[in-house]
Design a protein around this nucleic acid. Sequence first.
DNA 1: GCTGTCATTTGATATAAATCAAATTGTGTT
DNA 2: AACACAATTTGATTTATATCAAATGACAGC
Lengths: 187, 187
Amino acid sequence: MIELKQQFPQLSESCLVDLKEAVNYIQTKTNELLVREGEYANKAFFILEGSARAYYLKEGKDITDWFALENDFISAIVSFFSAEPSPHFIETLEPSKLLVISKDAIEELAIKHADFEVLYRQIITNTMLQQQRRLNAILFQRAENRYHQMLDNYPGITQRVPLTHIASYLGITLETLSRIRGKLLKS
Amino acid sequence: MIELKQQFPQLSESCLVDLKEAVNYIQTKTNELLVREGEYANKAFFILEGSARAYYLKEGKDITDWFALENDFISAIVSFFSAEPSPHFIETLEPSKLLVISKDAIEELAIKHADFEVLYRQIITNTMLQQQRRLNAILFQRAENRYHQMLDNYPGITQRVPLTHIASYLGITLETLSRIRGKLLKS
DNA sequence: GCTGTCATTTGATATAAATCAAATTGTGTT
DNA sequence: AACACAATTTGATTTATATCAAATGACAGC
């Protein structure tokens, strides 16, 4: 409870009480699957500690679609929001502590508590805006700039996450990323 | 009123009454600016007839970021949702009939009417999912496939919108698009 | 401390698409 | 119809990044 209050100070007491009822707390090791491809992934995860990624397999290749670090939400958004089987897997990238909440519970909370509804809408909106930025980066920036931008947004990510995942997230190959990093060292 | 009811059959009568109060009806010619760069673009537009695009100027180049046809919403999403000055312009692409509604009015309606709130959240969610698809297309599909996908999603768009805009939306140059179209004719 | 496996780097070549430049087609206006 | 101007096509060359292939580095388990 105290924890939730710190994480979501904008929520009212009564909302926090109901939220506490609705969430489950779990702990994981590295590389534990939270969502599998094909599932109806009606759960969202909030990362208290550790990290996770959403990814999918495209012609056998593992493509990271989303990273989440501390205080981020992560879900298999396609399945979560459109109630289709998930194209995404979600896995932890480090030993992690997570809160889990079902979509039904979220919708209930949103109906009952206006402040929760605002938060929910904000999270969706922020996700959309972040995708907007990512789209922009991929359309109009060189691989090198995208990598630097990523370092700005997630400092230290290269120490926490294998480079393959970072490369596929940036839409480049592992080799290209390696060359970019190599060039950086010299200058 | 009758019009609104047809456009939004999921909304309750009382909500439709308030919505009617909140919207303005406007008619435009081709290439009329609805939003200018730098504005605080706190308006959303619903297209009854015609079409519009959101675009921005990137190093002098005109980049289309979003198309809207009949029954689509369009807004300068960055400014609309984050209350920053808009990087986007919005202009009509054909003579159009539009509904205009302010963000404040939307927020009020969302507080007062749960059904409107659901609709609002759905629109944001759909925008996010569409961006997800677009990102995917740009990351993993050839220019040629992206063009065909666009034709599937917006049949007849090439007759309604200059190719430059379609090219920049797809993240390719006008010349490349022209070659793709040329190749298509031969096969 | 060695060994095997996975992660990363480095190298050579191929390719989709960009860029630069010019030609052609289309369109609206007096 | 003739003109100007915008939209589109076509051509030659360049470039960023992918792909294929091999070498090196790092680290977990014996």
